[in-house]
Structure formats: C-alpha cells, structure tokens
Design a protein around this nucleic acid. Sequence first.
RNA 1: GCCCGGGUGGCGGAACUGGUAGACGCGCUGGAUUCAAAAUCCAGUUCUUUCGGGAGUGCGGGUUCGAUUCCCGCCCCGGGUACCA
Length: 995
Amino acid sequence: MPLCNTKYQIMEYDFKAIEQKWRKHWAENNTYKTVEDNDRPKYYGLTMFPYPSGAGLHVGHPLGYIASDIYARYKRLKGFNVLHPMGYDSFGLPAEQYAIQTGQHPAITTKTNVERYREQLDKIGFSFDWNREVRTSDPSYYKWTQWIFKQIFESYYCNDSNQARPIAELKQVFETEGNTTINAVNDCEIEFSAEEWKSFDAKKQNDILMDYRLTYLADSWVNWCPALGTVLANDEVVNGVSERGGHPVEQKLMRQWSMRITAYAERLLQGLDDLDWTDAIKDIQRNWIGKSVGASVNFKVDGYEDESIEVFTTRPDTIFGVSFMVLAPEHDLVDQITTDEYKSEVEEYKKTAGMKSERDRMSDVKNVTGQFTGAYVVHPLNGEKIPIWIGDYVLASYGTGAVMAVPCGDQRDWDFAKKFDIPIKNVFEGVDISEGAYTEKTGTITNSEFLDGLKVNKAIKLAIFELEKQGIGKKQTNYRLRDAVFSRQRYWGEPFPVYYDKGVAKTIADEHLPIELPEVDKYLPTEDGQPPLGNATEWYWDEKNSCLTSKDNADQPHVHPMELNTMPGWAGSSWYFLRYMDPQNEKAFVGKEKVDYWKNVDLYIGGAEHATGHLLYARFWTMFLKDHGYIDFEEPFQKMINQGMILGRSSFVYHTSCTVLRSGVESDKPFQHYYHFYSKSDAEEILQHDFTEDQSEDLIRDIEKFNNVKLDGISDLKLVKLHVDINLIESNDILDIERYKKWRPEYSNSKFITNYEGNYICGHEVEKMSKSKYNVQTPDELVEKYGADTLRMYEMFLGPIEQAKPWDTKGINGVHNFLRKLWRLFHDNDGNLNLSAGEPDKKALKALHKTIKKIQDDMDRYVFNTAVSAFMICVNELTDLKCNNKAILEELVVLLTPYAPHIAEELWTKLGNEAGTVSDAKFPEFNEEYLIENTFAYPVSFNGKMRFKAELPTNMSKEDVEKEVLAMEKAQQYLEGKAPKKVIVVPGRIVNVVV
RNA sequence: GCCCGGGUGGCGGAACUGGUAGACGCGCUGGAUUCAAAAUCCAGUUCUUUCGGGAGUGCGGGUUCGAUUCCCGCCCCGGGUACCA
C-alpha cells in the first residue's frame, strides 16, 4: 500500500478512489444479482419506478431510493434473499410533446433520458439488480400489458363468487337461462331469456356482453382536455384542470374503453384494513371509493301509472320528512313529467345549468338554483303529494340522479327549501330547525307514523324493513368510485390488441402479441380529429393472414381497422412489480414458480400523490389476476412508506429599480442603468419602511456619476427581488459578487452594498425545486464533492423520511466529517492502517452494542435519521476511547454497510476480509450483557423538577433508594426542613419527591 | 365546510409504551495548533437573571407525584376532498 506519511501529505479518506473502485467491482462481479433460493426467506423491496424525464434527477428523487436501498441491504445482512429491482415507467406525455415539437421519435428521447438516469443512479451505489430492469415502453414488456388487457376483456364479475370469471361462462348461462338469474356486475338495461338471447344477432350479443365485460367500450361522459388532445381519468383531473399542465377539462360524450373497477369497490375498500400503509393514504382511498349505505326508494309519479323516480338515501328513517323531490337537470324523466305550465321555465333552467362547466358548479356552491316542474310524486307510505323540482345540486352521475329532499335533516335540502319557500316538515323530536338542518345521526324520530319514538339507528332498520316488505324500496350500498376510462388519444402508449370487424371489437390472438406501435409521420391527431395512430399506414388487421397490413388493403373483407386509441399511463405501472420477478419470460407475464416464491412487495416506497391513481389501479389488477389464479395474493404492496418532498432553498438578491427623470440631456447620449444591490437585512428594512432619504440620494448621485449627467430626480423607486443561482452562494448566504456579475452581465456595473465584513448577504426561501428558481441541487454535484456515501447518509440524516423538508447543503459537512472520523479510527496520524487485535475493552463493547441495538430498533421502525446519529455517537465514543480494536471495528463496518456501502467495502477489505463480500456479511448480534451497569444516576426531582442526580446501585430496593436520596445533603436543601409528602421511586428510572 | 397530518433552540431535527426536554448535526462564540490559512482538537451555546434562581415543547384549561407525550376547547401551517343525497 502506498505510504504517504510525510507531514503535509496525510493519507486521508479518498472517497473518489474508493467509490469508483467498488462501483466497478460490483458491476464486474454481479454482486447484486438475485436468484430464487428456497433455503432463504424472501424479501421484496420496491421503489416506485420513475418516468425518465429530460431534466434528470435532483436530490429529492433519490430519497426514497436510498431508504429502500438501505432497507434492502439491511435485509440481506439479516439473511434474506432480497429482490430489489429498478426500471422505468417510460411511456408518457413529455416525450410525446417533445416529438410533436421536434419530430424526434419518443423512443429515442426516452432512450437518451433512460441512459442519463442510469448514469446518475449508478453513482449513488444502489444494490439494484439491473439484470431485472423493465421499461413499460419496451415491446417485450407491453406484450404482457396487452395480454392482461385481453384477460380483463374476457372476464365479467360474478357477485356470487365475488370474483372475476371468464366471459365464456357467462355466455353459457345466457344460452341456458338468459340474464335474469345471473348475479353479475353490469350496465345491461334489458332482461332477456335464453330464447331471446339465441335470437339476437352477433352484433347485439356482443353489445350485451360489453355491458358485462370488466373492460368495455361505451359512450361515456369523459374528461376531455382539448389542450392535451386526450381524455383523462378522474384522478388526472384536479380542480377542473389537468393534473399535468393545468389545462382546462370539459365533459364530452365519447366512445371509450373503460375498466370496471367499480366491481372491485368493496374489495378495494375492505383490503385496506390489512395493509400497513399510512392512515392518510388509506383515508384518501376510502374517500375516493366513497361507500355509503342506505336504501333505494321508489316514488310513483302522480298521474303516471308506470313512471316512478328511484332515489338513493342514507337516511331512510327520515322518509316522512320528505318535503320535495329534486332531479338532476339531465334526468331522463324531466321532459316527460314537466307540465305544460312549466315547460319553458324548465327548458330555460336546463339550458343555463348545462352551460355551467363542472368547475363553475363546484365554485358556485353557495348559490342555490332550481326550478319546479309542475309534477308531483306520491309518498309511498302516506300517499301525500310531493312536488318535483330540478336543481343542479343533484348530480346526474351519482346514485340515481334524483334525491328525496329532507330539509330538516340535510343542509343542502334546507337551503333549497328556504330559497324557494317550500314548507319544511320536521321529523326530529325536540330539535329546532329554524336556523339550519339537524344533520347529526342521533336523536329520536317523530311525526313519522310507525317510526315515532325510535332512535335514528333503529328507525333506519325498521324503515328499510317496511320498504322492503311493501316492495317500495330496498337496502342498498352506493359507491362514489367511477369506472376508469382506459383510452388515450395519444401516440406514446400501449396499442390495444383490438380491431373492429363491422363495428364489433375483436381481440388479436395471443400468439400475435405484442402488437407494436406503428410508425407515424407526425404525432398529432389526424385532420379529421382521429388519434395520432390514425396517421399510421400499416394499421389494419388482416384476419386471414393474422398480421398488420396497409390501409391500401382496407377494402378487402378480411381486413379491419385497428383501434386508434392507446392505453393510459397507468396500464404498464399496474403490474410492473410482477414483471421484475421474471423479466425475460417469453411464455408468461410472470412464471408461476417465481411469483409463488417472491409473492407481493414487502416494502414499497414512493410518493403519496399516487393515492387515487397508480396505487388503486395496481390493487385492482392484482385482485383481478388473483381471481384467475395467476397469483395467490390479492394485495400488491403490503407495507408502504411515502417519502416526503425535498424542497429547495432558493436564494435572492434585492436591487433597486426606478424611472429616471432628466431634462436637458442630449437624447443621443447613451444612458446606462445603474443599480444598488442591498443585502438581506437592509432589504427587509426597506421593504418595511421604504428607502431612507440617504439611500435614494446615494442612488441618484451614483447614477449621475456613472452616466455623467445631471438628473432632475427619480420616481417609482422600488426594490426588486431576484432569484439567484444557488451555485453562486458561498456558505452563510454570502454572494460571490464577481461570479454573479458574470452570470448576469446586465448588473456588472451595479454597486453591491456589503456589510462591515465586505460581504453581500442573500435572502432565502424554501420552495419547490425547479430550474426557473435556480435552486436545483443535483446528486451528481454532491457525489463529486463529498461522495455517494456522504450523500446517502445526509439524505437520511435530514429528518424523518415521510416528512417534507427543505434541502440545505450546509449540514452535509457534518456527515462527511463523520465518515472521515470513521476512517481515522482505522489509521494512525500518518495514514497507515493501525488496528489492534485481542479482546476489546468493555467500554468499546458497550458503545458498539448500544449502536447495534439502536440501529436494529430503528430499522425495525423504518426510522433512518436517528440511525445516522447513532453511528455518529458510536464513532465519537470510539474516538474518545482511542479504540482501534479489530473485532469492534469489524462489527461496526457491517452495521454501516447499508448506509455507506463503499467505505464499508473498503474498510472490510482492510480488516482482512475477501473483497466485495461485506453485503453478505452477517448482521451483528446484539448482546445485552455489555450494556448492564452496576449503578444508575437517578435524576431526583422535587415536584416534577429535576434537581440533581444520585448515583446508586441498580439493584437497590425502592425503599433503600428513597432512604439514600432523602439523606443526601442536596435533598435536605430542597426539602427546607419539611417532611416530604410523598416519594415516588421508579427503579432504574427516576425519583420524584413531593413536598 | 369535512377528513387526515403537523406546530419543540438561530436552523434540520431527537425524546420507544407519561419519567433527566433540546440527542446528533449545522451555525455561532471562545481557546489550542499554525508564519498564516484550511483541516483538526478542546470548551460553550433554549431563553432570562440581581447568578440564588425563574420560565420554557402553538394558546387556554384539565387528569397525574410527574405531560412534548393522555383528555377538553381554541389558533396557525401542510395534505386530501368537495353539492356524493
């Protein structure tokens, strides 16, 4: 080994050489390759795979990856066979937008970006098994996305067995029994017998089957985003605008593929109970699914024999409080039942309501509107006539699009009744409803015939019983969850393995998958508004030859047009965790033996923003695949941690801006702007109290001097706050003025008003990291400067993983120093390896085992920040003890491996172990004996305030402790001669004296 | 509005089931070393104080020998959701 022991050349911790060396070693030796192994328990650790964007990674991205890597490495030391893969969610909008602008194929952009990501990831020392990488845009991957789509298409949901079943079974039932006996989730509006079924033509039969399929084609109201030229799923629309880009979204009726996720609503809800996820995410999913239990009730329309209005209510106990009915303006019956007298008003109202966008309706909640139709329903229990109104607070898309309005118990109904002077019936005993509705689910029902005197809960049950007995209604459960739109009018997504034979959707046989994306000459919609795939020439299916063919052959009877939509972004990500288990399998989406070994993900780390999207869809697909027996678990992600966002720390400079007033100056004389830059404290002063006279006069004088002119004065003097690139900031917010002037030449003539030390101090603020705020910190820069091990530990040290926290580079030195200090434990002052063999000293053993326990506990609780502190404490203690004992240091190195794998490998080798084997070392065994102490320094409190410490044997009895403590001189001092009222002794913990 | 989180020094944050509030790190102050600087090491660092103490975990109350931790009411910040009948 090289000796660099001259006084000024101490061999220090050379992280660059070390990290480079081990990265190479790991890659060359396939250190992190994983194979199935039945002798070891499995551990599957996964992080949400990224969309490879052009901007690359900033320090916020690797946070979750690092935590996940630490845990995976920890499990490995604990003897688990670890699957820790990584891949790319590589279909997506940005690559396509870029293609539209530049004509470059999204596949090329994607490939470049993936390479950049990989380069950045490789620098951080992850233990990913890259042999298992998946990319959703790779045909060998999306072949199976298409295959799963087909499986879903070929399924319906059976309510009796509560699972997905093959559609072939359904066909058989239709042929023998029609659809009257089957209990399946469907949209079918007709009932038919077996005879009728057989009499239907193929088209009609297919249309009916569509109403049962778990993925189906239907005209549905969709969120159409004109700016993006595509439809969006509900979870992709936030506050009426698109989640990506914030473009307006409108409702449009379109023929689209949808996924019947609603069939799984109850299972998706129930399954949450057993998941180890945060309550926040579970609540979001619960709210999104939105289960409500109640009853459906039929109200006959007065004067119509066959027409009735069905409503859903969660409060059937208040049925005698119905004061009016409200239909959604779009409700089917509105036109039919409206009396001539109200025709024009109703038409008018429908028109204005229809013009309001979803967004207007949302933002205009307080403004109650509605219109009477002139019609009435008959109360099914007491025969009273009840007026029918229409109002836009009733949504056509929820429940039946009609409500029974009970103003005494529902605030919206109450508001409506007040606005239109509709008399309110009160069914609550002893409750005043003159100021508002009584919305509590407690109390006693009155004015309600057979429900009188009953408590709410009992009344609900009895009301449902009675409604069912009389055949007027039945118990019912509703969900807010809607079916998920599954088509996008986009190019860069999975093509559907679907073609249309005379309008009937047919799927392409498995052996012809994948159906690869066709080449197009432009990525925009066609001139007649078809999706981009409409531009492809080879996009027809030749049924006879089972291949794609050109549109020139379209007139042949066996050639049919292909589906022009592509699948949404969540298609590929709904099952990717399964593909990692068996990424090269060409026969199946995953081999049965592989998935039976790896099962579901033990720990999933990713952002909370996917709560209603990816995390719900992936659960849905997993349940579906389980129903078909492909896998034997129903939840994909058993435990999940949501990492918080790392925010940027932006820096600011503050400069003057003013309008110059001058007369008598030759107009051709060039006038140059001149600015004063004020430091943070001055700027804050100015922003509060405005400029002082001196300040503005100084500015005028400087402008005059600089331009060699005489001014009449200045106006509009103000301070402008500007983002400054954080790379131009030295420690303590000091600006590198010279570099700033180079970066912003327009300010090169400015005067920087510095403090007494000659420094210009910048202001700062915590905001999201973004290019435009010049506050982006890339991991690459930090790895370059401090090394990957330091970056890994610092990201963990920042705070709890789930919490959002500001990024601040200042503290990174502390972590880096810790690693250097660790290095010095192994070396003497001249940088030579210096270890001692033999029995370790008791204090060192205590320091080590305290740390083993702490790390163990923290890992078990998924707490990473305090583990880093524990390492620091350990190294500090060993340094104080001047401990260089080999046995101690060896265990410490293993302990540290998950956090700082490079330095751990290096020191591990120096300790005499085989190169590259520390990842497979054994996690140190904690031995309590080393922590046992003979004495304990009892904190002695008086009335709960800690006053002094008393060093006493740990095995001393309560009584003796009390006696000893009270006898102490200091205790006497606090007792002031009085006898203590009470003394509490908790052995090994505390003594509290009550005076 | 409703549903979840969260409020602790100058800063990031510790404190497991009620038991020494402020671990660890940053920053700051002083000192050692150095021709000097960097690096390193040592000491100090919640506030306040008449140096005896006193106050203190968003605010007000409560339970307890003892509360950052439990209960009640309120304020503020972050996230989710929004006429869901």
